[in-house]
Design a protein around this nucleic acid. Structure first.
Length: 429
RNA sequence: GGAGGGGUGGCCGAGCGGUCAAUGGCAGCAGACUGUAAAUCUGCCCUCUUCGGAGUUCGAAGGUUCGAAUCCUUCCCCCUCCA
């Protein structure tokens, strides 16, 4: 996939004239671009409209999407216009990029529900309205659903070489591994290319951004634009995000790190960033916060335990962008009370238990399960056996243990812990 | 249409009539050590459990057998080669 000539090198990055590309390159967002000098010139000359496409396969975006959202944010902050494209149409097809297997097809209703839920995340990162740089949310179902097969083949299909399509990573990797690739999925890149051209026509969009796995799809769009409409379009991709120890970003105890607060609480979101590996602190501060670069340079030089200060700043700043200032402060305060003072922060995730039920002394393992700290009663028992379960900070290894009203602290709750880091409160109501 | 190969727990991948809730690796969880880090070591890793056990798993449905992930039948899906 990597075409050596397109990969950015330091010398090229240093010479960007536009604020947009200079910020992006300085902060480490750029992996490859199709014609970075041309794009730099366009962004210097005037307002550029750019888009990123988002799948609607889940009801929330996750931190894997965050890097591209931050690019849209910087785009807007440097005087240009962002478009968040919802893949209402393409989600019906399924992007084969980076997938070994055909993914399950989602129904129309589910896609619509996911889209509505995802849209809410953008409100925190981008500003919407009617100003020239205000963000637009588009849905490719608006045009893809209307397509007619024969006209599509004649107008668009003739510009695609199957020989070329077979060399695309998304296709080639499947074929090499003997994994199935349906004709449906094979068409995905054509539709994504079509999207780009459509957005160019509708909104004057000239740039598509995305993860490095989107390079092939993006290049297809750039070429289609040139062939069908003599458009001069650009593409930009971000590096693949992994942690310093090589793990894929964003997996944790309970799954992905979601951006929607109803899937992952702001407190847990804050915790995710707080637990960043030392080696990633500088890179993450540049990518996921808007702190000044010289400040970041200072923070990432902190040694040993001192770098924890930088991690707290990272956590609070990142949470601020996603969930707002108040939620970020509350998460930070809760963490401080919980970890530094050994008390129970009021802001910890909590569940409510009826007073009458508490009188009947529910089992500790059951409460651990209900609080979401473990995914089954059996797992709760295991946790207890291994000495990882605590009630009000006291280790409980007896599986038969129960709690009652007497265990409520002066503040009116029982604190449950699974391991050193995960806590929840049980409140009696 | 013909011939062959295959579908195993979150993923990869052994098993090919009993000792199989199923080797191993990855991912994950806990404990120790630490700095809510990394690395390392140890334990855990289907569900329920009155901790004695019980119940459901090896593409689906039937069958053979005292007993099946393992054998047979039908069906579904995937791959390779031939037409």
């Amino acid at each position: 996939m990597a075409q050596a000539t397109a990969v950015v090198n330091d010398a090229a990055m240093a010479s960007f004239k536009s604020d947009f590309l200079r910020v992006l390159s300085e902060r480490g967002y750029i992996h490859q671009g199709t014609d970075l000098d041309g794009l730099d010139a366009a962004a210097t000359a005037g307002r550029v409209t750019a888009y990123v496409g988002y799948d609607c396969t889940a009801n929330s975006l996750h931190i894997g999407n965050l890097i591209s959202i931050m690019m849209l944010r910087w785009l807007q902050k440097t005087g240009h216009q962002p478009i968040a494209l919802m893949g209402g149409g393409t989600t019906k097809i399924g992007d084969p990029s980076g997938k070994d297997e055909t993914r399950q097809l989602l129904g129309e209703a589910e896609i619509a529900a996911n889209m509505a839920s995802i849209k809410r995340s953008f409100a925190n990162f981008l500003s919407f309205g009617s100003a020239p740089t205000d963000a637009i949310v588009a849905n490719n179902a608006d045009w893809l659903d209307e397509l007619k097969y024969i006209p599509l083949l004649r107008d668009v299909g003739r510009h695609f070489s199957v020989n070329r399509m077979l060399t695309m990573d998304s296709v080639r990797l499947r074929l090499e591994r003997d994994q199935p690739l349906s004709f449906l999925e094979f068409n995905y890149m054509i539709l994504q290319a079509y999207d780009f051209v459509e957005l160019a026509k509708r909104h004057g969009c000239v740039l598509q951004m995305g993860g490095s796995d989107q390079w092939g799809n993006i290049v297809m769009g750039v070429e289609l634009g040139r062939r069908v409409a003599d458009l001069s379009l650009f593409g930009l991709t971000t590096p693949l995000m992994t942690t310093a120890s090589g793990a894929k970003m964003g997996k944790t105890a309970q799954g992905a790190i979601w951006l929607n607060p109803d899937r992952l609480s702001p407190y847990d979101y804050w915790q995710f960033w707080r637990n960043t590996e030392d080696a990633d602190v500088g890179r993450f501060l540049r990518l996921y916060t808007e702190l000044a670069l010289d400040e970041i340079a200072r923070l990432e030089k902190l040694d040993g335990a001192e770098i924890n200060e930088a991690k707290k700043i990272l956590a609070t700043e990142a949470t601020k962008l996603c969930h707002g200032e108040a939620a970020a402060r509350e998460a930070a305060a809760t963490a401080q009370r919980t970890f530094e003072q050994g008390a129970a922060g009021e802001g910890l995730p909590s569940i409510e238990v009826a007073r009458a039920e508490l009188d009947k002394r529910p089992a500790v393992y059951a409460l651990l399960h209900r609080a979401g700290l473990v995914s089954s009663n059996a797992e709760a028992r295991r946790l207890m056996q291994q000495g990882g379960a605590r009630v009000n900070d006291v280790v409980v290894t007896d599986q038969a243990a129960t709690v009652g009203p007497a265990d409520l602290t002066a503040n009116g709750y029982i604190k449950l812990s699974a391991g050193r880091k995960r806590h929840a409160l049980v409140r009696a109501v």
